[in-house]
Simulated assay, not measured.
Amino acid sequence: MAMVWTSDLNTGIDVIDRQHQRIVDYINQLEDPATRADHQAISRVLEDLADYTLSHFAFEESLQEEVGYQYAKPHKAVHDMFIKRLTSYQHRHDAGEPVVEQLHAMLCTWLTHHIKRDDMAYVAEVGAKAKQVTEDRKEGGWFSRAMKVFRKR
């Protein structure tokens, strides 16, 4: 069953909401290859999902760092645990285990809870500066900071 984006998942930070919606798109892309039992297509979606999620996490963490969000380290720890879970599912899939149904359920549940609990907690602090930070296009701007966080992983 496809995950549906609902308004209660909106953080009010447009760039973050668009990134979350893209993650939902990746989650939903698992359905078609799963019905066809297309192992390679599932692998590609999992790889794309992992790559995009890592870049989203790096972006989110850089915003938190930029504003001095006091819970940035615990938030990053939650991200790191999620990546370990996703990697575990990827390895199980690579080993031939049928994980898509279980993975889809985990992703839908995790993302919903993460947005509503962990992400909504930083909105007041990060939201006020997110527009300013994301519009910063000069050398050393948000993209450079996000890539530094990404490289630290």
Rank of each mutant, 00 (worst) to 15 (best):
R36V: 00
F59V: 09
Y69F: 07
L111T: 06
I42V: 13
E61S: 09
S144T: 03
R145V: 00
I115L: 13
K76C: 06
Q132K: 11
Q19P: 09
K131I: 05
R92E: 09
R92Q: 15
K76W: 10
I115F: 09
T53A: 09
D38A: 04
T112C: 08
L107D: 14
R85V: 15
R36E: 03
R145K: 14
H91Q: 15
L49T: 11
F82T: 12
E65A: 07
H39G: 05
L86G: 10
S43V: 01
L9A: 04
Q21H: 06
H91M: 15
H20W: 02
N10K: 12
D14L: 10
M81A: 15
H104L: 12
V67H: 01
P98T: 02
H39T: 06
L111N: 07
K116P: 05
R92H: 13
V123A: 02
L49A: 04
V126I: 10
T35R: 14
E65D: 06
L111P: 08
H56V: 03
Y89S: 10
D80Q: 13
M81P: 08
F82Y: 10
T87A: 11
Q102N: 13
R137G: 09
R85E: 15
M120Q: 14
H56N: 05
K131H: 06
D8R: 08
K73T: 11
S144M: 04
E139D: 03
D136S: 01
P74F: 00
I13V: 15
Q21G: 08
W142R: 10
T112A: 09
R145C: 00
Q70Y: 02
Q90D: 09
H79I: 01
D136Y: 01
E60C: 04
L111D: 06
R18P: 05
K116G: 02
Q40H: 08
G96D: 03
R117H: 14
L30V: 00
A41C: 01
T134S: 12
H114K: 04
R18N: 11
L49C: 08
K76H: 11
K138P: 04
E101V: 00
Q40F: 03
V133D: 03
E135L: 11
F143G: 10
G68V: 01
M120I: 07
M106Q: 14
Y69D: 01
E135M: 10
A58M: 07
P33W: 01
M120Y: 07
Y26W: 00
L46W: 02
S43W: 00
Q70V: 02
V100Y: 00
A95Q: 14
H104P: 11
N28G: 05
G68I: 01
Y71S: 09
S88K: 12
Y122V: 11
A95R: 14
N10G: 06
M106T: 14
H114D: 06
A77C: 03
H91E: 15
D25L: 01
E139N: 08
F82Q: 12
G96N: 07
K84R: 13
T112D: 08
Q132R: 10
L63T: 03
K129V: 03
I13C: 06
T109Y: 05
Q21P: 07
L9F: 06
K84L: 03
L63M: 13
Y122E: 12
A95Y: 07
M120T: 07
T35D: 15
T53G: 06
K131W: 05
S62M: 14
K84T: 02
S43M: 04
T134N: 08
R44N: 07
D136Q: 08
A41D: 05
W110N: 11
